[in-house]
Nucleic acid binder design. Structure first.
Length: 295
RNA sequence: GGCGACGUAGCCAAGCGGUAAGGCACGAGUCUGCAAAACUCCCAUUCAUCAGUUCGAUUCUGAUCGUCGCCU
């Protein structure tokens, strides 16, 4: 079975740097598993690695969609499979690195996605209904949605005409490494990184808007893009209020990521709060070396 | 020193005699084609303190403490 190394972690945990370091060391290439880094133009706001860093190691699934374009889990999985297979074909080691848990899991566990594509007309049609009304419609169509709790998911069940999941079909033998921090530490790192990126983030969004980017689409992207647009539109009293709100949203996001990762099986977590950067790299190197040796 | 207003969860805040709304934060969780999204749950045996009136007080009365404002 083909081998894949996956690196996961919360926002600002240091995934990208570890991925970069390991890819350099093991003749690897990086496949980003990030739902926002796929967009062109969103560099600082999505926390992409720099162009310089990309010179040393090839990156995939970054800048593969234009702002305004819909990009889905299905698109990601398909492109990620293609990129990974291509890397392997060229005798290099694929590293899947990113914080969109659903995306990386879809590849690691081999989600077997339904044939039913999103149906915008149907979504629009059902959007205004209440949860109860949607449940009733599902009942009439004999779709068992007892486990589903949100309108969005009920609508997806109607799209698929089913609530069933198709069993997974993993394509790769995966070594999954996670970087973990204490809550306090990760919150601190998020704040520091937000401060560092802020001037560039503001400039980036200003520039995008000046070049005709759709502000509503940017707002739909959430977090940085959304809050910076709102700040530029004067929706906050001052910079501090804007910063505090965005920082708060980032903390909430990190918490949600953590909840998602809590259920992740087969991850070797490296505690970054208790180990130096060097120790983390040494540990990761050892793990990868052993993993690549196995048949 | 005098006068007035106010003291309800970490914060904002409603209730003003019948047994503590709501929002935010915090925490926990759900999620296989929007996931940086969309959702769910949890959070004051108690209303500054003490005493009194009352069947019953966070709500009324008094005192004390504290905060703020005004006057001297």
């Amino acid at each position: 079975m083909k081998k894949l190394i996956s690196i996961i972690g919360l926002t600002s945990s240091g995934k990208s740097s570890l991925g970069l370091a390991m890819a350099k060391k093991f003749n690897g290439e990086i496949v980003s598993a990030d739902s926002r880094q796929v967009y062109k133009g969103l560099d600082y706001c999505s926390g992409k690695v720099t162009k310089d860093e990309m010179k040393d190691v090839s990156h995939h699934l970054i800048d593969v969609a234009n702002l305004g374009e819909q990009f889905s889990l299905y698109d990601f999985q398909k492109m990620a499979y293609d990129a990974i297979d291509d890397i392997i074909k060229r005798n290099k080691v694929p590293f899947l690195v990113g914080g969109t848990g659903l995306y990386s899991r879809s590849v690691v566990e081999g989600y077997n996605l339904s044939e039913s594509e999103p149906n915008q007309a149907l979504r629009r049609q059902y959007e205004g209904l209440t949860l109860e009304e949607l449940q009733k419609i599902c009942g009439e169509k004999n779709i068992d949605v007892s486990g589903e709790q949100t309108k969005r998911r009920l609508i997806r069940c109607l799209e698929k005409n089913s609530a069933c999941k198709i069993p997974n079909k993993p394509k790769y033998d995966v070594l999954q490494i996670g970087i973990s921090w204490s809550r306090e530490d990760i919150y601190k790192r998020i704040e520091i990184r937000l401060r560092e990126r802020m001037p560039n983030m503001l400039a980036e969004i200003k520039n995008l808007l000046a070049n005709g980017a759709d502000r509503n689409f940017l707002k739909l992207l959430g977090l940085e893009a959304k809050f910076v647009v709102r700040y530029l539109d004067g929706e906050f009293d001052d910079f501090d209020q804007f910063f505090d709100e965005l920082f708060k949203e980032e903390r909430h996001f990190a918490k949600r990521q953590q909840t998602w990762y809590n259920k992740e099986k087969n991850v070797v977590w490296i505690n970054a709060s208790e180990n130096s950067l060097e120790e983390i790299e040494v540990t990761a190197t050892k793990l990868i070396k052993e993993f690549l040796k196995q048949n």
